[in-house]
Design a protein around this nucleic acid. Sequence first.
DNA 1: CTGAAAGCGCTTACAG
DNA 2: CTGAAAGCGCTTACAG
Lengths: 345, 345
Amino acid sequence: MADPARRPDNRYGSRPTMKDVATRAGVGLKTVSRVVNGEPGVTPDTERRVQAAIDALGFRRNDSARVLRKGRTASIGLVLEDLADPFYGPLSRAVEEVARAHGALLINGSSAEDPDREQELALALCARRVDGLVIIPAGDDHRYLEPEIKAGVATVFVDRPAGKIDADAVVSDSFGGARDGVAHLIAHGHRRIGFIGDRPNIHTAAERLRGYRAAMADAGIPVQDAWMSLGATDPERVRRAAAEMLSGPEPVTAFFAGNNRVTVTVVRVLSERPRPVALVGFDDFELADLLQPGVTVVAQDAAQLGRTAAQRLFQQLDGVLAAPERTVLPTRLITRGSGELPPAD
Amino acid sequence: MADPARRPDNRYGSRPTMKDVATRAGVGLKTVSRVVNGEPGVTPDTERRVQAAIDALGFRRNDSARVLRKGRTASIGLVLEDLADPFYGPLSRAVEEVARAHGALLINGSSAEDPDREQELALALCARRVDGLVIIPAGDDHRYLEPEIKAGVATVFVDRPAGKIDADAVVSDSFGGARDGVAHLIAHGHRRIGFIGDRPNIHTAAERLRGYRAAMADAGIPVQDAWMSLGATDPERVRRAAAEMLSGPEPVTAFFAGNNRVTVTVVRVLSERPRPVALVGFDDFELADLLQPGVTVVAQDAAQLGRTAAQRLFQQLDGVLAAPERTVLPTRLITRGSGELPPAD
DNA sequence: CTGAAAGCGCTTACAG
DNA sequence: CTGAAAGCGCTTACAG
């Protein structure tokens, strides 16, 4: 009953500590610390005695306590929009692999595209004293992070740049990718091209719209307001937008879809219609090549985004970076059929 | 992590602590603690003074220190196979939502299907003193967790049960789902049905094979060894297995695919062949309905698996659970065309 | 209403 | 080679 290490009913507080190990092994606390951390300067015999006590007690070092003393937590935070979105899976995995290579764990959470929730999460991670933060921003004002960054929290934004603060960012070339995709449709004879994208306050959505406008302007095609729809990417809204653009005397003959959620819904809409309509989507997705026709996309490399961002984060922590910088990764047009359909009329 | 010795001038030494706030506000440490935690018993005037000091200093409570003192860390760990696999996205998100509702953060990592890496990750999470662990096991021996569980770490296994220890598990009805899916093919006239699944040491793979055998036995169809292939789910292996079953004088006329990775590859193989072959896959996937034919699947609810597991985890932490238990969630057959094709010969 | 002291489980800095 | 003391930033238990 004296031994605190074997009280099965007291769930917490029942774990043996270094002090318990030291007592059992008949050595000092510091000697246990040396053995646990593989530090030199312990005789083989002492080490054996300590190890025996560790095994007997089932001791496992409390990294929470260690972290408090050492300063760095060897963990980084990842705030993204939605863990369930297939675009973020490879991105998260890439961040995790880089973290792992640096011996750090990954704490992550979804903002659900809610700026308040993004802030709440990011600050909770700062309170846990993560060493760094990789953020896919939902909001457009990140001044709330200034004190944290000043206090030493490494920070990199991915997919979208930070708002109102100067910070590292790694993004895809949304403008160029969209311009190329729309130019591709124009090259195949389309003039009435619809653009359906995410909400306009999202940086990538605005950039892709800008790319659309640029391609149309380059071709000398005046753009009609009815051809552009920005808003939430839920299927209902996208369906409505697509249906509107396809109705009337002068329907669009092609769509450019602003992200993978939109593309998938547009594919569904088009599959229900007899007349073929061309489509190019931003973001690649699984099975895009097996649909009929295959879906032509402007692909971005989600894993590369995550990897690059995480690498910059650890460079910041190593103190080898100068000023914040924006890294822009190229996109790639993949033709599969849907973007090469001629105009229906 | 980077060598702590060469970190640039105490990044974290620069953060203000409660003591700094107390000094600046001219109050005691405990009074600051009261204000920070919203505890009662502080006069409005004192509270104002403390709050002013907090704002001026940019103080943020160090939850690492708090956790050390309080016992619970308000964080849970999730060990899964691969964050990038679309099956785990909704599962992770569901776990996260339950954790969030309980005020806990989620630390997660991928085992990459490697038992050693699973153990390394799980134990690293225990060293961080997560309150609980949700594990999608890669290995089949979890005795390494016994001391942790005894010490009070709540543990729930998902998708696959634990090996060699008695622990809570939440799984889909792999046996029943596979049996139903194969019976569906038999009902549509098939007798030569191929089964391609994951490696046989994975519990779900073995259970689904058992379901296949049961359906065949129920129909009085003798099963040939050449009709069953278990192994890695990389495209090359699955392609080879499918091609073999489709060759020879008596090719299979239908496939049952053991999981979504296999299904996708089989769809690709079949799309390259002229003769229609029936297919039912375990696991639903996006766009399955838009392929031609639509892919008939035995669907499991990944989000529900995650939600149920996380709920049980917090029930364990609340001490309201008795003995470990296995929860089996039902599957659902969704017919879309590929499973209703008649035999080709 | 307020605060000084002890302690959570480790590491650091130092002395023997 | 070994260990006692101090301290990381909080909360707990207690006293005024």
